[in-house]
Nucleic acid binder design. Structure first.
Length: 415
DNA sequence: AGCACA
């Protein structure tokens, strides 16, 4: 009594910017909390649904006096504080700031809202929790760190990814090999692909795809998110934005590619090639969608697609029955060449006779210059030949033997 | 109706 002047409570009554509210309706939302408290001052933080019954909450005012005014008001008011008709008891909290560890989704406005599935959540966590902690997500592969997503919060408090010209693609259900070439083909539909890097993360294949600008990346992301590279739900893409804007990748490896490097010899070879630029197919609506619920339209209806009259990616006759999407699987399942070799994907349950992918005909351009691992390459291309006939047979490995530029080399630099 | 979580 003589000590505090507020004898009615046994808990500390030291004024605090943080108020403790109890007897709230269990379904009390943050909005209701704010409604109740904001007449007294600026609310800088809240935490609701606290306690076993989730009927407690904390509200932190910007200024101590504001908290005091609220407590004082209701201490002398004939009308108790109420939420949904329920009397709410308000006291100073015995803490002086709210440690906001709301679980994601609890409350809008939580800066640390983390709702990204799978591996991406891991990388996101890396940014959010910083590097002070021993982090199980620390990438084994240095490249993996590229995949960090920038968390951001919009005015409405909802999580919002910061856009980037670099997309992080997680490939789910990767029954079939996804090569640099495949990705290049897929992502080129939306604009020039500058760089690609493929890496493994937590047992999942991910890739970074760099466009020249954010807009292109955004379009690609929109169009490709959730879609599968191959029919049957294989190699499903999940796209987010990378934190990076310029990848540092090896120009030529089986896992990466830098298409911006002016490789004179390659360029020359490509220009010498009679083949038009390799371009993905699926912007061709009549080719028919192959993805469930696929409704994306030619992503570019616009300029990015066939600049400079680079039309007709390949022989139209090859398009018959070809899935509109990706092409160029360099290691197509069910093909004889894959049976004994193509690493883990070779065992994919793929009927060799009835490939739904009609892979052989969808190769936009043979000999896409990428480097598979030598072993795979050898198996893929027993003859080391890259000819149309091979493509028809489904052998069409996009393998460039010995680094040479085959006739079918896509004009990576040609656009 | 009585103080969260790293």
């Amino acid at each position: 009594m003589s000590t505090s002047g507020q004898p009615q409570f046994r808990y500390t009554q030291t004024p605090s910017k943080v108020l403790h509210l109890r007897n709230l309706p269990w379904e009390c939302t943050e909005e209701e909390l704010i409604e109740l408290c904001k007449p007294f001052g600026k609310i800088v933080n809240t935490k609701c649904n606290v306690g076993a019954n989730r009927n407690q909450a904390f509200v932190e005012f910007g200024d101590l006096n504001q908290a005091i005014s609220m407590v004082s008001y209701y201490a002398s008011s004939s009308e108790p504080a109420q939420v949904r008709g329920k009397t709410v008891y308000i006291q100073y909290s015995n803490r002086h700031e709210i440690v906001n560890n709301k679980s994601p989704g609890d409350v809008p406005g939580n800066v640390l809202l983390v709702t990204i599935e799978g591996v991406e959540a891991g990388t996101l966590a890396l940014t959010l929790f910083t590097w002070d902690y021993t982090n199980p997500y620390l990438p084994v592969n240095p490249t993996a760190i590229e995949g960090i997503v920038q968390p951001a919060v919009g005015a409405d408090g909802k999580r919002k990814e910061l856009e980037s010209n670099v997309l992080l693609a997680s490939i789910e259900n990767m029954q079939y090999a996804v090569t640099v070439d495949v990705l290049h083909t897929v992502f080129s539909a939306f604009g020039t692909v500058q760089k690609i890097a493929i890496f493994e993360k937590n047992g999942q294949t991910q890739a970074l795809v760099q466009y020249p600008d954010v807009n292109t990346a955004a379009v690609a992301r929109e169009a490709l998110e959730g879609h599968c590279i191959y029919d049957g739900g294989y190699c499903k893409l999940h796209l987010s934005y990378s934190r990076h804007t310029d990848l540092n990748v090896k120009a030529y490896s089986d896992k990466s590619r830098d298409y911006t490097i002016p490789d004179i010899s390659l360029l020359a070879a490509q220009q010498a090639s009679a083949l038009p630029a390799a371009q993905p197919v699926w912007q061709n609506p009549q080719a028919g969608p192959m993805y469930p619920g696929n409704d994306f339209t030619a992503p570019g209806a616009g300029p990015a697609q066939y600049p400079g009259g680079q039309v007709a990616p390949w022989d139209p006759s090859m398009q018959a029955g070809r899935p509109p999407f990706v092409s160029a699987p360099s290691t197509y399942p069910g093909q004889s060449y894959a049976a004994s070799s193509v690493s883990s994907y070779a065992s994919a349950p793929m009927p060799s006779s009835s490939s739904p992918h009609t892979p052989t005909s969808q190769i936009p351009s043979p000999g896409a210059s990428m480097g598979l691992s030598p072993g795979v390459q050898a198996n893929l291309r027993p003859g080391g030949v890259s000819s149309p006939s091979h493509l028809q047979q489904g052998v069409s490995p996009n393998v460039r033997p010995g680094g040479a530029s085959p006739p079918g080399q896509p004009a990576y630099y040609g656009q």
